[in-house]
Design a protein around this nucleic acid. Structure first.
Lengths: 203, 203
DNA sequence: ATTAAATTTGACTGTATGGTTAAAAAGTTA
DNA sequence: TAACTTTTTAACCATACAGTCAAATTTAAT
């Protein structure tokens, strides 16, 4: 006797993830998840206690994904000056393909602060930035980079990378109203972000 | 014979603005707006055709507010190197007091793209950044600042300013899990953002 | 093949929600 | 004050929605 059909559970989770990330908690209807998963709404409650429980699972997976990607690339052992352009390049690619993920996490963290904070903490427990901090400090001591707070470098990195995509529907409008070609701007961003970050750490 | 009671209409709009900005379109219930405005739900429909019409008014006001503040400060006639720290200072103060506004606009632009885009366009029509662009170019020609694209300076300014607040519930958790005092970091941000922007334009 | 457990379904329920209606109350003009 | 208009209300309606239940179907073990 097994316990639950993993295929069905995965199918529900995958569909729920897509819809929750696009429409948010309040905007998502369990009926739509069931329909798109090709199952009955009752079955959804057989696998997941209720809408909130399903949402919480999706939310936790999402926050974990956000941190995992960042931590993986940040913790690799390479000199920061060489690492920066590569990190920016792959990070911008990742963000552009997963922008819904970031909009979702930020929206829900504010709209449902009471029950999302717990999962932010859980996700943070699995992630470790201490490696990044200590290798940053080592490079400072070795005289390779300027003596700045690694936290500010990190905040600037994610701000410069994520935010332009967050507001891209607005920026596209703004640029076209000014007769500026937005695809050129997007292409230039990688270089701009790299240069801006490098100017923080280069002596 | 007058037409509508302006007090009542304003009361509804103000309450609607607060609730929509906090809970988003789907998360907001018209009953709650009516309750907090101290009126009957029928009266809400007497003043506004339906929930969507009320939302659209609030959304338009919000996008306009976002652009108006930025444009006002950006268009003032002062050398960019002197203007930057002042602009950052007042912009960060403004954002920290109105973070819901920014979360709201970004969330809704993605979640309800079909019917928000129109209002983004309307709001953009009322705003003019051409002044900023031309005075930036003048400073470049005068040799006061480096020859960079003013759009990238603008994108970096808003990214570095707004994004840390957007993710502040997460950052606070992250920092405390690393035993870092977040209030110190926040205080340092003004200087960091200014310096980062200045390093883009200083020769 | 029989039995029993796990999985899936159709039909249902209660409530929350956006919106309407008809009438009462308040305000305005003559 | 009478007549009329504007504003506000209580009660109501239809629908959408999250969640339940009992029965049917599938799966696995003997």
């Amino acid at each position: 006797m097994k316990r639950y059909n993993k295929d069905t559970e995965d199918k529900i989770l995958n569909v729920a993830q897509i819809i929750f990330r696009k429409k948010g908690y309040a905007g998502t209807k369990t009926q739509e998840i069931a329909d798109q998963a090709g199952i009955n709404k009752a079955l959804l409650h057989y696998y997941f206690k209720n809408k909130k429980a399903l949402f919480e699972k999706v939310f936790l997976m999402s926050v974990e994904e956000v941190f995992t990607f960042l931590a993986t690339y940040l913790n690799n052992e390479e000199a920061l000056i060489e690492k920066t352009p590569k990190l920016v390049d792959s990070y911008l690619n990742y963000i552009s393909k997963n922008i819904n993920l970031f909009v979702f996490v930020i929206s829900e963290v504010w709209q449902n602060q009471e029950f999302t904070q717990k999962f932010v903490k859980i996700a943070l427990d699995k992630v470790d930035f201490s490696n990044y901090i200590s290798s940053f400090k080592k490079e400072v001591e070795a005289g390779l980079i300027r003596d700045i707070n690694p936290i500010h470098y990190l905040i600037n990195l994610v701000s410069l990378s994520i935010f332009p995509f967050l507001v891209s529907p607005i920026v596209k409008n703004l640029l076209s109203s000014m007769d500026i070609d937005s695809s050129t701007i997007i292409l230039e961003r990688k270089e701009v972000v790299s240069q801006t970050l490098l100017s923080m750490i280069k002596k």
